[in-house]
């Protein structure tokens, strides 16, 4: 009886899962409806339903806008938001640092450097046009994460919040300088600097959504599986080892998984900052720090947040489209200050 009660509390109920899925689907439909050309809710639902089941789409419905332009974009945004938020929640648990996420640690910049290097050098995988930049982004993300954590460890031997953020900022500046340098010398082949530093989903297509979906299914699944270990690591590596966690193996798996997922996101959408910082933090306030609930909550809330941020970026100054990172960074910077202040206050 007690066991059942505890298990129920540890995981989401089917009703909560249903409510979160419904909220996500509604936000996705909203984002398909709203844009420079408005599409009605019923037209959108009809087009999506008929398109999914291979039925003919009635005349008068903006089929191309819904299925060729907005749907792939909305899918990519949702998957990317979910992935980045999930990674942020996992890193914050692993490092016991509420400010840890891809962009504050400098991992996203490292991934961007890898991706841009692949584009500039023409490195590709056969039959997979953006495979080269994806692979290099994943490798560079992992290398960056290991290097940043090693430097922070060498600095204070305890991976203090301040040390990690400091090294992360320095590394981000260093990576940005290298990215600028590569763009200067290879401007014909690469996208703009603002794409790599502020992110954008313009021009994404179904293959991108497929790659993001596969990455989220695979790497996100691994992260969700390691919820108990993340709970254990939230109390320090010693405590985790004492209760039977194979700390070295688990840490390596988590670092590789997080780097790979961030690498895939960055190679497709550039650096979208702060999603992995804000949403896990809000999710933690709502559902508590237990990763069995926190990770799914971060996944859904990250997807919804990035969808709304993308909607804002597309429509705020329409027809001009803002880089999505502008919106996430404005919200994220404010959140960063609040979280940093509260963290310091708690430690005092």
């Amino acid at each position: 009886m007690t066991e059942t009660r505890t298990l129920r509390r540890e995981r989401f109920t089917p009703l909560t899962c249903l409510a979160l899925t419904a909220a996500l689907l509604l936000t996705m439909i909203l984002c398909i409806c709203v844009g420079s050309v408005r599409v009605s809710f019923s037209d959108t639902v009809t087009a999506l339903w008929n398109g999914a089941f291979g039925l003919p789409i009635p005349e008068g419905i903006a089929r191309n806008i819904i299925l060729r332009v907005r749907l792939p974009r909305v899918l990519c945004v949702a998957l990317c938001g979910a992935a980045l938020s999930l990674c942020g929640a996992a890193m914050q648990g692993l490092l016991r640092n509420p400010l840890a996420e891809g962009s504050t640690l400098g991992v996203s910049s490292g991934a961007a450097l890898g991706a841009i290097l692949a584009v500039a050098t023409g490195f590709t995988l056969p039959g997979f046009s953006f495979g080269g930049s994806m692979v290099l982004a994943m490798i560079f993300a992992f290398g960056s994460l290991v290097m940043i954590l090693s430097l922070a460890w060498a600095l204070d031997r305890s991976l203090e919040t301040g040390s990690i953020i400091l090294i992360g900022v320095i590394f981000t500046m260093f990576s940005s300088a290298l990215i600028s340098l590569i763009i200067t010398f290879a401007s014909d082949h690469t996208r703009t600097l603002s794409f790599w530093t502020m992110g954008s989903f313009s021009g994404v297509s179904y293959p991108h959504a497929g790659a993001l979906g596969a990455a989220l299914f695979l790497f996100g699944g691994v992260l969700l599986r390691f919820s108990p270990e993340l709970n254990a690591l939230s109390f320090g590596e010693d405590n985790a080892r004492h209760i039977g966690v194979n700390v070295r193996r688990v840490k390596l798996i988590l670092l590789i998984t997080v780097s790979a997922l961030i690498g895939v996101c960055v190679s497709i959408a550039g650096t979208v900052s702060f999603v992995g910082l804000i949403m896990p933090h809000i999710a933690r306030m709502l559902v508590g720090p237990n990763h069995r609930r926190l990770l799914p909550a971060s996944l859904f809330s990250g997807a919804i947040f990035l969808l709304l941020a993308d909607l804002t970026a597309r429509t705020l100054l329409s027809p001009i489209e803002l880089p999505i990172g502008v919106v996430t960074s404005i919200v994220g910077a404010a959140a960063f200050v609040v979280i940093f202040y509260r963290t310091r206050k708690v430690r005092r």
């Binding site: 109390f235 405590n239 508590g288 237990n290």
Partner: peptide, 24 residues
């Protein structure tokens, strides 16, 4: 093993922390 220094960063409940003892 019971260490003299335990790090508490997040607001886990007492029961959640004790339940971690069953990890093995």
């Amino acid at each position: 093993f019971l260490s003299q220094k335990n790090q508490v960063t997040y607001a886990y409940t007492v029961e959640e922390v004790v339940s971690l003892g069953r990890y093995a």
